[in-house]
Nucleic acid binder design. Structure first.
Lengths: 117, 117
DNA sequence: CAGTCTAGATCGGAATCCGATATAAAGATT
DNA sequence: AATCTTTATATCGGATTCCGATCTAGACTG
């Protein structure tokens, strides 16, 4: 476990979803909300309170930064966000962490008889 | 997405960890706490408040049930819990859901240039 | 017996999420 | 131009969840 990223783990569900929405490209706030809903097939929908609350915290922690506008003819109200390098590392670490645990859980689910402690 | 399980998703982190701790075998409360800490390399530690709060809710929802004692010479204070069939299905569905999203996120992380929305 | 560990459980406070709400610009339609 | 709808940022009170101190007490060890 990397000392660099472990202080940020475990991520809250909302933070995880936001980082994942930004994994592929920079997005503005409203687009993040839409992407989270899309990625999760509607299972996870962030309201504006949750989004901006979490964005603020992620900005403060340096996992996310504001990024430049897409272009000069882009909607001028939009504020774009991107993952920092740290944010990418933290997201990768959280994914690795959970996937490792899922591996073990799936082994347990594959068994049918409860074994006694 | 199965209509049977989707009403229970997304799971909160604590609920997910508890279900995973019970995936392999029945455990009593204190052992669940220890297993969660072990599975997550100490990244996630449930305090007693979180544990019993969540256990109660999982019991109410039918994802977890109390189970028989391990043996007659087991510590008599212990209360054992097990995953119900529904609990197993919900856990499997949550893992599948997250793994699918991780697949996509990892593709995004693998790219280095931010692409514009 | 005293000390330590195991085990169940509660509860007030802090943190996080929900979602209604507000404001307003941009786009579409009439 | 006026009106309606969608996009976009943001706030905030209330609800929910988590934290962890705390309590009680049994089991084990020396």
């Amino acid at each position: 476990m990397h000392p660099l990223t472990s202080q940020f783990l475990p991520l809250s569900p909302a933070a995880l979803h936001i980082l994942m929405a930004l994994a592929g490209e920079d997005r503005h706030g409203y687009a993040i909300m839409r992407e989270v809903a899309r990625q999760s097939d509607g299972q996870c929908r962030l309201g504006p309170g949750t989004l901006y609350d979490n964005l603020k915290r992620l900005l403060d922690k340096g996992l996310v930064a504001e990024s430049a506008k897409a272009s000069d003819d882009d909607d001028p109200r939009r504020r774009y966000y991107r993952l920092t390098n740290l944010g990418r590392q933290v997201l990768a670490a959280e994914i690795a962490r959970l996937e490792e645990m899922f591996r073990e859980a799936k082994l347990g689910l594959a068994g049918t008889k409860p074994r006694r402690a």
